[in-house]
Computed example of a mutant assay.
Amino acid sequence: MEKAFFTGLARLNKWLLPSYSKKRLDLSKASKWQLAIIGWRYYVTTKALG
């Protein structure tokens, strides 16, 4: 049940949130908001895969 929830959430994130890796964002120059989005996407992706 939990894995299905995070899989759906990961698909929603992919559709709604920006992809900073495609934009070649430098992490040392990223704002706090951008780092929060990166961290959230990482958390959801690891939960969906695990």
Rank of each mutant, 00 (worst) to 15 (best):
K3L: 14
Y20A: 07
G39K: 12
G39W: 04
S28D: 08
Y42F: 13
L27M: 08
V44F: 03
I38C: 02
K22M: 09
G39R: 10
F6M: 09
R41E: 07
K47Q: 09
L25K: 08
L16C: 12
F6D: 04
T7H: 09
A48R: 04
V44S: 01
L25E: 05
S28G: 00
R41M: 08
G8L: 10
Y20F: 15
W15E: 15
M1T: 14
Y43P: 00
I38F: 01
G39T: 10
I37L: 10
K3Y: 08
A10K: 11
L35E: 08
T45M: 06
A36V: 00
R41S: 09
R24T: 06
K3I: 14
K22H: 07
K32Q: 10
F6C: 03
Y20W: 08
I38P: 00
P18R: 07
L16K: 11
A4E: 15
P18Y: 07
W33L: 12
L27N: 03
A30T: 03
K32A: 12
A48I: 05
F6N: 03
M1V: 12
T46N: 06
A36P: 00
T46I: 11
T7Q: 15
K29L: 10
K32D: 12
R24D: 11
W40F: 12
W33H: 11
E2N: 13
L17Q: 09
A48E: 03
S19Y: 07
L17A: 10
I37M: 03
M1Y: 13
A4R: 15
I37A: 05
L12V: 13
S19F: 04
I38R: 01
F6L: 07
A10W: 04
W15I: 12
Y43E: 06
K23E: 09
K22V: 05
L25P: 00
P18C: 07
G8F: 09
L17H: 10
A48G: 01
M1F: 13
W33E: 14
T45Q: 13
K47R: 14
Q34F: 02
L16R: 12
Q34H: 02
I37T: 08
Y20R: 06
G8W: 07
T7L: 15
K47N: 03
R41P: 00
I38D: 00
S31H: 02
G8D: 10
Y42E: 13
Y20M: 05
I38A: 01
L49W: 06
Y43W: 11
N13F: 10
G39Q: 04
A36W: 09
A48F: 01
G39Y: 04
K23Y: 03
G50W: 03
K3C: 08
I37V: 13
L17G: 07
K32V: 05
L12Y: 14
L12N: 10
W15T: 14
I37K: 04
A4V: 14
K22W: 07
L12H: 13
K23W: 03
L12M: 14
P18V: 03
R41I: 03
K29N: 11
A48T: 04
Y42C: 04
K22Q: 12
R11Q: 15
K23L: 08
G8N: 15
S28I: 01
A48S: 13
F5E: 11
M1A: 15
A36K: 12
M1N: 14
F6A: 05
K32Y: 01
W40S: 09
K3D: 05
R41A: 05
S21T: 13
K14E: 15
K23A: 12
L27Y: 02
Y42A: 13
G8P: 06
K14H: 14
G39M: 01
S21E: 14
